[in-house]
């Protein structure tokens, strides 16, 4: 048990430090480590836990708590929560203070401009990883495309679209199951 908690802490602390570009950017690596390497969850469970994070308020990467809970109960959730969020908080606290001191440094601009396309590229990879897990048919594709189109068109609270997507898929899915 202690060994499992230690492994959970190490893996999620590593993911925390690697999360350049945020939660979406680190999604493929998280999937690789938790599914392929450690077999803590299956691909389907990983996708479903991610979806739970979308329905909950606040940062959606709180999904990692459920992975910890699955593996080692409440202690697992606590360990994963601290491991995934604390290193970044400490890093940000000190890096921000240093950043302020070098406010006018030309290198600061170079770092921001250089890291930006990397972060965006990683976010595209994260989006692609989630698409591979969740879009298996035309209904899924239509739900994703419609969400993109509505959000590009106007400001809507994303949770409404997310819930609508879930309900549409649910209705189509049960209809299909009954038709068979």
């Amino acid at each position: 048990m202690a060994h499992k908690l230690l492994t959970l802490a190490w893996v999620f602390a590593l993911l925390s430090i690697l999360a350049v570009g945020g939660g979406t950017a680190v999604l493929p690596e998280m999937q690789k480590l938790t599914v392929t390497q450690y077999h803590w969850v299956t691909d389907q469970q990983f996708r479903d836990i991610y979806s739970l994070g979308q329905v909950a308020p606040g940062p959606n990467m709180l999904m990692v708590l459920v992975i910890g809970y699955r593996l080692a109960g409440a202690a697992g959730a606590a360990v994963v929560g601290f491991a995934f969020f604390l290193p970044d908080c400490i890093l940000t606290l000190f890096a921000n203070r240093m950043w302020m001191r070098y406010k006018d440094s030309l290198w600061r601009n170079a770092i921001q401009r250089g890291m930006a396309p990397i972060a965006i590229g990683l976010m595209l990879s994260g989006t692609y990883a989630l698409a591979r897990l969740s879009i298996h048919n035309l209904v899924g594709l239509a739900v994703a495309a419609a969400t993109l189109a509505v959000l590009m068109w106007r400001r809507v609270n994303p949770v409404l679209l997310i819930s609508a997507g879930g309900l549409i898929y649910l209705v189509c899915f049960t209809r299909l199951a009954q038709g068979r």
């Binding site: 994260g126 879009i135 994703a144 969400t147 959000l151 679209l161 309900l167 898929y169 649910l170």
Partner: peptide, 21 residues
Amino acid sequence: EINGFLVGVAAAAVGLLLTVT
């Protein structure tokens, strides 16, 4: 039914993530 709902949520999240990106 819950599984169906969660797959739809993930599919909609793909559209959301793409928009944010």
